[in-house]
Computed example of a mutant assay.
Amino acid sequence: MGVASFTHHHGPWTVADVLALPEDRSVRYELLGESLVMSPAPGLRHQRASYRLHVALDAAAQAAEAPVEVLEAVNVTLPSGLVVPDIVVADAGATAEDASASTPTRCGRSRSRPPSPGSTRRSP
Score class of each variant (00 low, 15 high):
1 M>C: 14
4 A>C: 07
6 F>M: 14
7 T>W: 06
7 T>D: 09
8 H>D: 15
8 H>Q: 13
8 H>I: 08
9 H>F: 10
9 H>L: 09
10 H>Q: 14
10 H>C: 12
12 P>Y: 04
13 W>R: 09
14 T>C: 04
16 A>Y: 07
18 V>A: 01
18 V>P: 01
23 E>A: 15
24 D>R: 07
24 D>K: 07
27 V>H: 01
28 R>Q: 02
30 E>G: 06
31 L>C: 10
33 G>W: 08
34 E>C: 13
37 V>I: 10
37 V>Q: 04
37 V>G: 02
37 V>D: 00
38 M>Q: 15
38 M>S: 13
39 S>W: 05
40 P>N: 03
40 P>E: 00
42 P>M: 05
44 L>F: 10
46 H>R: 03
47 Q>K: 05
48 R>W: 06
55 V>E: 07
56 A>C: 04
58 D>G: 08
58 D>W: 00
59 A>R: 14
59 A>M: 13
60 A>P: 10
60 A>D: 10
63 A>E: 11
64 A>S: 09
65 E>A: 15
67 P>L: 10
71 L>N: 02
73 A>S: 07
73 A>N: 03
76 V>H: 00
78 L>H: 02
81 G>I: 05
88 V>L: 06
89 V>F: 02
89 V>G: 00
90 A>T: 00
91 D>T: 05
91 D>F: 03
92 A>E: 09
92 A>F: 10
93 G>F: 06
93 G>A: 09
94 A>Y: 01
95 T>D: 06
98 D>Y: 01
100 S>A: 13
102 S>Q: 04
104 P>Y: 01
108 G>R: 01
108 G>E: 02
110 S>W: 15
110 S>N: 14
113 R>L: 12
113 R>T: 13
114 P>S: 11
115 P>S: 03
117 P>H: 05
119 S>P: 07
121 R>Y: 05
